[in-house]
Amino acid sequence: MSAIAINPVYRVVRFYEAPIGKKAIMALTGVVLFGYVVAHLVGNLQIYGDPQQINKYAALLHNPATSGLLWGARIALLLAVVMHIVASIQLWKLKNDARPVAYVKKDDAAATYASRTMMWSGPIVAAFVIFHVLHLTVGAVVPLQEIAPNEPNVRANVIAGFSNPAISAFYILAIALLCIHLYHGLWSMFQSLGFSHPRYTPKLKKGAAIFAILIAIGNCSIPVAVMVGLVK
């Protein structure tokens, strides 16, 4: 067993070297990303309000006086995404190293669809996020409309984007995967950080499912509303 004083750098390395350390990082970055997903949804749902509301909200976010904050948040998010992805890739590699010879026949005893597909739902969601940023933030897919500099016409851009059925379909698919990803991630972050209790964990799993579904419904409602003409 180890001696009492350990070099702090080594301590961090040792923590991260252990799969549990990586999982803890995934859980913590997962919390950040989950927080963003919720905040993003709250922002987006303003599209159902007064036609100017969401644009006002966008203008607030893009206010040049607080651009430092915006960029800070963006960098923090980016960092969380990168760490989440790097750790997941490392763990995925570990998985392959840990079982070099596969079974001829393998069944599942308890694995949920969500838990088994984390490694697929993750990258697809990531790809979607890149597309989504290019589409609605950068404007690389279709040119974005602006009311004034630093005042994007979000409402118009959203309606224009989701009027395209292909974009809407991709969006809905990605949200569905995100929902599955979130379900497993949400309860499993507690397990990864060391919380499990026979009374609370089953409730947590249920809560995670409800939350994931609510987020999916909230997000999917927007392209649907645009396509059926509820939001014009």
């Binding site: 763990l91 570990l94 840990a98 599942d108």
Partner: peptide, 10 residues
């Protein structure tokens, strides 16, 4: 060389 737990429950 054991792998990492991903909370699957198998």
């Amino acid at each position: 060389l054991f792998g990492s737990c991903t909370n699957i429950g198998e």
